[in-house]
Simulated assay, not measured.
Amino acid sequence: MTVGEAANLVGVSVRTLHHWEQIGLLVPAARSSAGYRLYGPADIERIHQILVYRETGMALADIAQLLGETESGVAPATLTPSSATAHLARQRKLLTDRIARLQEMVSAVDTMMEKKKMGIQLTPEEQVEIFGKDWKPEWQDEARERWDDPEVWSQYADRTAKLTKDDYRRITAEIKAMEAQLGEAKRNGVQPGTERANQLAELHRASLDQWFDVPYARQILLARMYTQDPQFAKHYNDIEPDLTPWLLQIVEANARAHGVDTENVEW
């Protein structure tokens, strides 16, 4: 077959086969009457041998030595059955060693990922102490299952990893103060779309944005989720009756004021 056909068959580039010929690693078995390279079955077998050794990370010069290449660049004869078996056994050993190394690397990466996704660096007891008796440490795992967004969780892990116990106390106090302002505004009849309502919507967005990026569309989707999730709805409605739907209204009105089409929002 031609060099192009051989390259397509084994999944390498024509340029690669040309390079291997230049360094004497793979010299095609024949040439056509027009001088074009022609690759036979033995050449294809040799290409596969080279690819296996390359997969182990071996240098081309070492591969050439293993395959019995001569300095003149003339390819050796086809391997005998016994020598072919020896080559395959050597290749298998190299590949299994490489698999073992890669498995070790995967385990190391898994460990790093597990640490990165831990998020809140507090014990369950400390979480309840800071966030209140109603806090459930398993909520974090439930949220990860519900919203499987790698980018968001990466941001969350990076930002929470830097927080100390005192930071969490401060943030919790700020959130409670913000929620108290929401309840007071609802109680006093503040209407969605007014300046005060928009200020509170921005305050709410900022409280979320400290954990991960929260553009207006994402804030809308979160506020809608509050109205659909019994636990979230109860949390806000315990502060002030019907605070949950009111919060959604001020969030959507503020987003519209910033040019967001609230009928078509994406996470």
Rank of each mutant, 00 (worst) to 15 (best):
Ile130Val: 11
Val128Thr: 11
Glu71Gly: 09
Pro245Ile: 07
Gly57Val: 12
Lys115Leu: 14
Thr78Phe: 10
Arg54Asn: 12
Pro215Gln: 07
Leu200Pro: 07
Asp167Lys: 00
Arg101Leu: 13
Ala253Lys: 04
Ala255Gln: 00
Arg37Val: 13
Leu102Cys: 08
Trp20Gly: 06
Val251Arg: 04
Glu45Pro: 03
Trp211Gly: 04
Thr244Pro: 00
Ala185Pro: 05
His19Ser: 07
Leu9Met: 12
Asp213Thr: 15
Trp246His: 04
Pro241Leu: 04
Ala255Glu: 00
Gly68Lys: 00
Ala59Asn: 07
Ala75Gly: 08
Ala100Phe: 03
Gln65Pro: 02
Glu104Thr: 15
Val214Gln: 08
Phe212Ile: 06
Ala29Gly: 15
Glu184Lys: 14
Ala75Ser: 14
Leu79Gln: 05
Pro192Arg: 02
Ala233Val: 05
Val3Cys: 06
Lys186Gly: 01
Arg169Glu: 08
Gly40Pro: 03
Leu182Ser: 00
Glu184Cys: 10
Ala157Thr: 01
Gly132Arg: 00
Met113Ile: 13
Asp158Cys: 05
Gly189Val: 09
Arg256Met: 07
Val10Leu: 10
Leu200Asp: 05
Ala89Cys: 05
Ser32Phe: 14
Met178Gly: 13
Ala257Asn: 06
Thr194Ala: 09
Val52Thr: 12
Glu184Arg: 15
Gln199Cys: 04
Glu5Cys: 10
Asp242Gln: 06
Trp135Lys: 00
Asp166Leu: 09
Glu240Thr: 00
Phe232Asp: 09
Arg37His: 15
Leu66Asn: 13
Phe232Tyr: 03
Leu163Arg: 07
Trp147Phe: 13
Gly183Ile: 12
Leu203Ile: 03
Arg37Gln: 11
Pro150Phe: 02
Gly193Asp: 03
Met112Ala: 15
Asp167Phe: 08
Glu145Ala: 01
Lys176Arg: 10
Val265Tyr: 12
Val190Phe: 14
Arg170Cys: 01
Ala34Met: 11
Trp20Asp: 09
Gln249Tyr: 07
Gly73Met: 12
His48Ile: 11
Ala64Glu: 12
Ala143Met: 09
Gly57Trp: 15
Leu203Phe: 00
Ala42Lys: 14
Lys234Pro: 07
Val128Trp: 01
Ala201Gly: 13
Arg37Ile: 14
Arg101Met: 14
Leu67Trp: 02
Asp148Phe: 02
Gly24Met: 14
Arg54Leu: 15
Ile239Lys: 02
Gln181Glu: 14
Trp211Ser: 10
Lys93Ser: 12
His258Asp: 03
Leu248Lys: 04
Gln155Arg: 03
